[in-house]
Computed example of a mutant assay.
Amino acid sequence: MAFGWRCTGVGWPGEVPELRWSRGRDRRVSVLAYGGGLGFRVVGERHCVGARGNVCPLGAVVPARSTGARCAECARLDRAHSVAADTMVDDPRTYRVYLAWFGPGMVKVGITREEREAARLREQGAVAFSWLGRGPLMAARRTEEVLRAALGVPDRIPYARKRGVRGQLPGAEERFAEVAELYGRAVELEGRGWPESLERLPLEVVDHVGIFGLDRAPVAARAVSELVEGGVLAGRLVAAAGPDLHLAVDGEAVAGKRGGDGEGVDGGGGVVVLDTRLITGWELAAVGPGAGSEAGVPLIDIAGGGVQGGLF
C-alpha cells in the first residue's frame, strides 16, 4: 500500500514549532514561522500512524475525530512503553518534576526526562511553568503522586479547556504569582512523602506567552473539530501552543456546508485553531493561503495572506 507524506503532528524541540511528516520509515520536518502562510487539502483516508516509530502493520483506517490517530493494537503498544504506564521502573535516566500553569486556576504536576529539557512543557501548551525537583524515575513519580493528592491538582487538563482560556490570560505578574504560590505549597510537603532521592530545584518561572506568539495574536473564535477528505484549510500562522496552530484565515479560506452538532463552516474569516493531533495520519497536499474548498472543514465556536511556505 503506497502512501504520500503523512503528518505526524507538531513538535517543539526548541522555541520554534515544527510539523513532522512520515512516509513509511522516512521522516522529515517543516519548521513553522509566525506570519508565514500555511495551507493544505486533505487527501484520501486517515490511517494509523503506528507506534514507537514503527509503521502500522495493518495500515488501519482510524476515525476522523481521534486525537491519537492509532488503531487499537498500536495504541496498546505505544502505551505499554510510555513512562505514564509505570512499566519502566528500571529506567536509569534522570527525571524532572514540574509545575505547569495553563490559565487561572488551571495547573498540573508532571514529570519529564531531564534530557528533554522544557520540550514536554511546550508540547502541552503550558503558558508558564517552574521546575520543582530532579531525581530517579520512581522518586519523581512518587513526588508527582504526593503533590497531586496534597495540592488537589489533576494529572491532565483537556486541551479544550486550555484553548478556551488562552485568549483571556492575565498579565505576566499574575502568571508568575500563581506558579510561585503553587511552588511554595509544594515545597512545604518536603519530609511528608517527598522522596529523599529527589533533589529540590529553586523556583524559576518560565513564561511561554512570547514563544507561543500569544502576546501579539488576535483572539481565536473557532476551532477545527475534524478533517474530511477534500477539505481545505489555509491562512497565516499567528500563534501556536502545544499541538494547536492559530491560523488567521480570510472569508474564502474555510468554506463548505453546515455540519452537525452545532458545527458549521461559514467562511467568516478570523482566527481558527487547528489541533494538529487531528491532522496526524492524513495525507495533506499544499495549497495557497487564499484557497477555497468544496467539502469544507467543520468548525466549532470557542469564543466567550502571504505565500505558502514550508508545509512540505
Rank of each mutant, 00 (worst) to 15 (best):
Pro218Asp: 03
Gly105Ile: 00
Phe312Thr: 04
Ala80Trp: 01
Ser66Lys: 08
Val224His: 09
Glu294Met: 07
Gly292Ile: 01
Asp215Gly: 15
Met1His: 09
Asp86Tyr: 08
Glu117Arg: 13
Asp155Thr: 08
Leu182Thr: 14
His246Asp: 10
Arg52Tyr: 13
Ile211Pro: 09
Ala126Leu: 05
Val287Ala: 02
Gly210Cys: 00
Leu227Cys: 11
Ala64Trp: 02
Ser130Arg: 08
Leu247Asp: 12
Ala64His: 07
Val228Gln: 12
Val10Gly: 03
His208Val: 00
Gly269Lys: 11
Val127Ala: 04
Cys48Phe: 10
Pro57Val: 05
Gln124Arg: 00
His246Ala: 13
Val224Phe: 06
Ile302Val: 12
Arg161Cys: 03
Arg156Ile: 03
Thr280Gln: 13
Leu182Lys: 09
Gly210Phe: 09
Val297Tyr: 14
Ser30Ala: 13
Ser82Thr: 00
Pro170Met: 10
Gly230Phe: 01
Lys162Glu: 05
Tyr95Gly: 03
Gly9Ala: 12
Asp155Ile: 12
Ile302Leu: 15
Arg120Gly: 09
Leu311Trp: 12
Pro195Trp: 02
Leu198Lys: 08
Ile279Trp: 12
Val209Lys: 00
Gly125Ile: 11
Arg236Ser: 02
Val206Leu: 03
Ala255Leu: 10
Thr143Cys: 14
Gly24Ser: 02
Ala60Gln: 09
Gly184Phe: 04
Arg76Asn: 05
Val43Cys: 07
Phe176Arg: 15
Arg236Trp: 01
Trp21Leu: 05
Arg175Gln: 14
Val49Gln: 03
Arg6Phe: 11
Glu45Tyr: 07
Gly44Ala: 09
Ala85Gln: 07
Gly235Cys: 12
His208Gln: 15
Ala84Cys: 13
Gly35His: 03
Pro170Leu: 05
Arg27Cys: 00
Trp131Ile: 02
